[in-house]
Design a protein around this nucleic acid. Structure first.
Lengths: 254, 254
DNA sequence: ATATTTTGTGCGATAATCGCACATATGTTC
DNA sequence: GAACATATGTGCGATTATCGCACAAAATAT
């Protein structure tokens, strides 16, 4: 929560309501009012009111006891995609790239210490990246996140790494601050990033920066693939030029 | 708004806050607090509070005057996709189908008189469907919407058509109630639906029902394509079996 | 430099939202 | 089927969240 805003300028009913929506996930696809109250620390009466409000507005449905989200909540996420030129411009280019290279591609931005995936074009592969629009990953475990962090100045990068509090997600996740910093700095020098098995075993990410026509850094576009698909040097040789070509085409449109 | 719920059970701050998010779109990608107040009938002070709240929570950003949505709002839509087995099960099958048939595919459900697209696997085509997860179209202009409406009983279908208040989107949109009912009823009989240029000129949709293993109607899966790609009879011949095959595979998983 | 428009903010008022307690309904156990 | 436990519905009074206003300050337009 941004500490700058005065509490009297904040609408707590909205904050709680959004927290209710976010409380539903694959471990709790449906909840009773009592379960929700326990999960997000609301009174049962308050939980009931938020659930009834969301149901009344069409964002949830109920059988009288359990509540679950409806597809209408996707409308909220779509407010972002329909209000922003970026996803609408980038998505077709990523789909074309996915078709040319045969691997899943995506576009991510950095939000604090998290990499947020805004666009995805998934290839039909057995190994699924699990990345879809809206996905957020710890930036230090994401090639895109690291590449984008590489553009921070030295002090800001140190702070970013500290704030990330790196911990292992796989047996080879880099958690040592100095090693992480070195690997991130190397990405900036070479103009692209590559990581393997940092968030999920067997998954490789290759990223290049995406800039607009004024040369402002917009985010990163990436390929996500199985490490078994080809060696990392073959992957770099094949995919970095293709990513750069897509980035150049997009730079003219943005 | 559902009329069943008592006003005292509703949280108006949440309703207004969600309305604020939905106010941003491609015609208003960013707004000042005064513009928002005019757009959704809030006082300027209230508009300011909602914008500051959403900014504080990370869903919006500001340059001090204008406000715009951030990718974080996609998180809200993701609560639906991560809390529901349906999209996670259906999406990979649609991607495989898109790759096999070379056209965009999608999964839609009916919400009232609207068709809501929950999953999409878009092919790399010049003619883009513009359909993405969360898209809502008037059901009567959508092949999926019509096919799903065809399972309503006779009286409910009449009511559905009346509530839809059909109006022309293209030069050939069916708006006559009797004609629409006849075309919808035909879809049920033949077990699939096909329409052309009902919402957008030059776009053909072919849909089949999707059922779960208990034979409950879940929604419809569809191909969307350019009418110029092939004749409608060739499209039916090629695509209906492929859609039915995917529906059958999914029926075993759902 | 001036006029106009927009925004920031403190304030008192109102009503939205709160949590509680009790009645009712539902589910579980014997 | 009865007893018990758990969950839900609801009315209520209390609290405070949210309201809109008015004025000052800042930004923008001329």
């Amino acid at each position: 929560m941004n500490a700058d805003t005065k509490p009297s300028d904040l609408i707590d009913g909205l904050r709680k309501g959004l927290e209710v929506i976010l409380a539903f996930d694959d471990s709790s696809p449906q909840m009773t009012q009592s379960e929700l109250a326990l999960r997000i620390d609301l009174s049962r009466a308050a939980a009931r009111r938020y659930l009834l409000t969301l149901t009344s507005l069409g964002y949830m449905a109920t059988d009288g006891k359990y509540f679950w989200l409806t597809p209408k909540v996707m409308q909220l996420g779509r407010s972002f995609t329909s209000s922003s030129r970026l996803p609408r411009t980038i998505q077709p280019e990523l789909q074309a790239l996915t078709e040319r290279c045969g691997e899943s591609t995506n576009f991510a931005v950095l939000e604090g210490v998290e990499a947020v995936y805004v666009c995805c074009a998934n290839a039909n592969r057995l190994l699924s990246t699990g990345i879809e629009p809206g996905t957020r990953l710890p930036g230090y475990t994401s090639t895109a996140g690291r590449l984008l962090a590489s553009f921070l100045d030295d002090q800001a990068l140190d702070q970013w790494i500290n704030q990330s509090a790196p911990r292992a997600h796989t047996q080879v996740t880099v958690t040592d601050h100095a090693t992480l910093k070195r690997e991130i700095s190397k990405m900036r020098k070479q103009g692209y990033g590559i990581t393997e098995s940092q968030f999920e075993p067997g998954l490789r990410g290759i990223s290049v920066p995406l800039r607009d026509s004024a040369n402002n850094l917009i985010g990163a576009i990436s390929v996500s693939m199985a490490v078994s698909a080809m060696t990392s040097s073959a992957a770099v040789k094949k995919l970095v030029p293709m990513l750069n070509q897509t980035a150049a085409r997009l730079a003219q449109k943005l």
